[in-house]
Amino acid sequence: MVQEDRRAVEARGVKKAFGRTWALRGVDLEVRPGEYLALLGPNGSGKTTLLRILATLIRPTEGNIRIFGRDPRREGEECRRLLGFVGHDSFLYGSLSVSENLHFYARLFGLPDIPARTRQVLEALGLERRAHDLVRTLSRGLQQRVAIARALLHDPILLLLDEPFTGLDAQASRSLGELLASLRQEGRAIIMATHNLNEGLEACDRAVILLDGRVARVMEGPEIRGERLREAFLATLES
């Protein structure tokens, strides 16, 4: 795994307006390589917008972003090589098989030895037996696993996850939690947006609460474990 001697993510004064509505009102954020950051907040707090900006899918109205020191506006292709994004949508084609979807994205990323890499990712996600199934025939949980496989294909050193536990059953949630913990162990930076305080936060290093498009609170250490996180989250919402 490539480890770079820079901040994985650096956001300064990031604002985003959709028409007259401000989704982000000036967000400052730093994420270190290998850090697992939880982005918490209620619906409409700006989590998805921030992740889509970091993923280079939308441009900020104001402010600057750096992905491992690179400016997405000038070095978009380089930034996209470094990051993997799992969004609300799976980005998968229902009428293609799991394997065909992964081959398609692997080719777009220009990966070498695509069959071997696809097999490796499918095994890591426990999807080998589903390789030839059409994606539209898979359950929501399995589709989510394929979406994560797609995001991991090019071995990104920054993972952006938007509500990855949504729609997963208990077993799939546990598997995903373990997978995220192991990805963090491998040294990848992870930013996971969620409004669910029950899942995927065990391995987090830090939690940032977004409210109305601003960073309302940053927590780390014992503060983000168990009940203390819930209490801090509710106190921030009420303040």
Partner: peptide
Amino acid sequence: RGQLSGILLAPM
């Protein structure tokens, strides 16, 4: 279906 975002994420 969100697939366009998947394509836009590719470094090309």
